[in-house]
Design a protein around this nucleic acid. Structure first.
Lengths: 150, 150
DNA sequence: CCGTATCCGTACAGATACTG
DNA sequence: CAGTATCTGTACGGATACGG
């Protein structure tokens, strides 16, 4: 079962982008390109692993602690995906207790740089968005309270 | 059923980010912030709608054509979410045939700016990633051909 | 220590039909 | 024109147990 992808992260990535023809606005192409990135790094744990690995080589168990909340399975799966896409490098040390180190590739480092733009955006508008959500929920779901923390 | 979210896009956004305490690397906080953005805009159609609306007011049916491939349901759902987060503005014209126009908010416009960083990253490394995938599949799944179009 | 396999719940997404 | 509701498939993600 080297390839039978019936479960887990990964498999297809952005085939849908192939449906883009030139018949509509050029901005759509931009949207598609961004989608490619999100399909690759949009996973729940990808970013966490990437930032951890960007600070130097990390071992499997160390990642398990650093990411905190991730399961064995998800860690392996995301690791495999990232490695497959050339974002992570996997170095196996054939020692008696197995030792594997993951390192971010230059490409991943560049991605991390690009990510800070998004981070800044989120930082700036975090509260505004939260307010918008509350306002929307109050206006539209007036008969039904959101997140009743009792 | 104003709020019973059993299906479709949206609902929770980034509650998992609350689990972040200061006990591990500061980079993890960055990862979390990026996750917030992805949870909001990481949907399959969000970006497409956002870029379309960023070029001026668009109507429902126009979006259906522009995004191309999106279903009625997904369009409505994503629209609602984006509006809820304050990324889109919904203007209803009480005319005899209903007319609704969606406009990107300033916040969304800023996001679009941040998105170009990601776009450039994808453009630069698109081929490298594709090559990495092929190489990986060839090395690990040598006994099982990937995407056999035969 | 470093994974892999199986089971299972849920969130996301498409198709279709109906309404105001 | 602009939605909403229901059904259904699938992909993602968690828990757990087991193997090298």
């Amino acid at each position: 079962m080297s390839q039978g992808n019936s479960d887990g992260t990964g498999g297809r990535a952005s085939e849908a982008c192939g449906a883009v023809d030139g018949s509509f606005a050029p901005g759509q192409a931009t949207a598609c390109t961004v989608r490619e990135v999100l399909d690759r790094v949009g996973g729940k744990w990808s970013i966490g692993i990437l930032v951890a690995a960007s600070q130097g080589p990390v071992r499997f168990t160390e990642l398990e602690r650093r990411v905190e909340g991730i399961s064995r399975r998800m860690l392996t799966l995301t690791l495999r995906n990232l490695e497959r896409d050339g974002l992570l490098n996997r170095k196996v040390h054939p020692t008696v207790p197995p030792k594997v180190e993951y390192t971010a590739t230059p490409i991943a480092l560049e991605l991390h740089e690009s990510l800070v733009a998004l981070t800044h955006w989120a930082e700036r508008h975090r509260s505004a968005i939260a307010a918008a959500r509350t306002a929307y929920d109050r206006a539209h779901g007036g008969d039904l309270p959101p997140v009743p923390q009792g």
